[in-house]
Design a protein around this nucleic acid. Structure first.
Length: 430
RNA sequence: GGGGGAAUACCAAAGCGGCCAACUGGGACGGACUGUAAAUCCGUUGACUUAUGUCUUCACAGGUUCGAAUCCUGUUUCCCCCA
């Protein structure tokens, strides 16, 4: 069994911790919690860092609690956000909480009988019992406004002049109380979180100390960054979700595969469970032959398998090979229909009647008007792109916009259209 | 309250009566190279269309002129200086 702190340390996942934590952990099995905000009905890869942290905690023999913020989600954490958050309604929140619970339950070991079995809690369960009066009397009394205003997350909002509502201001108190509640009732003595949570976590340890003279600990992990400074976990099409309906396993796999060299070493430590030795070997191999992108492939494999399973991973690899490998028209034609559809699952499709299709004069019409503007909204754009060499049908470049429309249909009913390198469309003939 | 200046396409920034759909840079998008990368190079970047075409743009509303992003009048917004 490995040491939790050491494990995080070499993985570059340790930002900060309260001083006596290490000793505290060495003294036996401990419990820690980490919270997830139900702002959407799926986790995204940014949350994965938290998940991994809990996972390491459990693997070190300790007991992890995943908290879903059914209550805190109603308030909105002001931490390092520049503007007041929009509140979600209760129904949406309930739905989100349920979805997150389902996802979280896949990662940790919740098996009965395991001594350090993971637990899932929702702070709505205890916060909803409180009346406002009770809360400000029993909890608010212990923390001064001066203390709360001194937090960076709050201070910044005050300085910027954008202000924050009393609602958001109270957030740290609620989260602090969560910690107290879990400490009191579940024996949770540690709170884990992203580095932006430090202030909120410490309010919790403060509350525990003041209310009952207890001691509790904090540990934060760094926020994930990208070497080029852009925001981690975003693609052109938005967040990378764990829910396969929101981000297909293929797109998910692609995200990891496209990680830059600078970031790959960092990410493989954070997002996979590979041990130090294996990682160093992979890094060495990567350096020797960077073009093979060994690191990226391994990260993509590990993470995709963990989230979506082996089958989906293999499908994603297959799809990637077909889409980006040097496959030809023949390779495409050789695919059976089922595989073809699987590979191109999620690719935008447009249907054209067979009769109508037969009457289309040239490629230009086919890609603009006749495909209802899905591929190109106008003839002009289609023409420009074709002339710029950016269009391919069935993996073969289209060079003349006026070329007649006599492509071989795959499976006798599909055309695979490529706009640029990465955008695919399917025209299916009915 | 007084004085001065500015508003141009996704952003920045030229243009100051016809040669302006508007220089240039960034971004975005394509292409070449490559590792589905970075760097570099090339092309496109108001709309529709493909003819040496049409239409809609230079804060907004009017006006002068054969002709305006460019001149005049009013309106709005922003910036600076003085009080």
């Amino acid at each position: 069994m490995n040491n939790f702190i050491d494990e995080l340390r070499w993985r570059g996942m340790l930002q900060d911790m309260t001083p006596e934590l290490e000793q505290h952990l060495n003294d036996g099995m401990r419990s820690a919690y980490l919270g997830f905000d139900p702002t959407a009905d799926s986790l995204h890869i940014g949350h994965l860092v938290g998940v991994m942290t809990l996972l390491h905690f459990q693997r070190s023999g300790h007991k992890p609690f995943a908290l879903v913020g059914g209550a805190t989600g109603m308030i909105g954490d002001p931490s390092f956000k520049s503007a007041e958050r929009n509140l979600l309604d209760k129904a949406t929140l309930d739905h989100n909480v349920e979805c997150l619970k389902k996802q979280l339950s896949k990662f940790l070991n919740f098996k009965e009988g395991t001594t350090n079995k993971a637990e899932l809690v929702n702070n709505y369960d205890w916060m909803s019992q409180f009346s406002f009066l009770e809360f400000i009397r029993d909890v608010g009394k212990y923390i001064t406004v001066n203390y709360m205003m001194a937090k960076d997350s709050v201070k910044r909002r005050l300085e910027e002049g954008s202000g924050l509502s009393f609602t958001e201001f109270s957030y740290q108190l609620i989260q602090g109380y969560d910690f107290f509640h879990l400490w009191k009732n579940k024996g949770v003595s540690i709170q884990l979180g992203g580095s932006d949570q430090w202030g909120n976590i410490v309010t919790g340890t403060e509350l525990i100390r003041k209310m009952e003279g207890g001691s509790a600990f904090a540990l934060t992990v760094p926020l994930i960054t990208k070497a080029d400074g852009s925001k981690f976990g975003k693609t052109e099409s938005g967040s990378v979700w764990l829910d396969p309906d929101k981000t297909s396993p293929y797109a998910f796999y692609q995200f990891w595969l496209n990680v830059s060299d600078e970031d790959a070493s960092k990410y493989i430590r954070i997002f996979t469970l590979l041990d130090k030795n294996s990682i160093e070997i992979l890094e060495k191999q990567h350096q020797e032959a960077p073009h093979l992108r060994i690191l990226q492939k391994e990260i993509a494999k590990q993470v995709t398998t963990m989230i979506h399973g082996e089958q989906e991973y293999e499908m994603a690899v297959k799809a990637s090979e077909i889409l980006f490998g040097k496959s030809s028209t023949e390779d495409l034609a050789a695919l059976d229909e089922r595989t073809f559809l699987q590979v191109f699952d999620g690719v935008p499709q447009v249907q054209i009647d067979r009769e109508e299709y037969m009457n289309i004069g040239n490629v230009l019409d086919l890609l603009s008007e006749k495909s209802q503007g899905l591929i190109f909204p106008s003839k002009g754009e289609a023409r420009k792109m074709i002339q710029g060499g950016g269009v391919a049908i069935n993996k073969e470049k289209v060079s003349d916009p006026n070329a007649s429309n006599n492509y071989t249909l795959l499976q006798n009913k599909y055309l695979l259209v490529q706009k640029g390198k990465k955008q695919y469309f399917i025209i299916s003939i009915k």
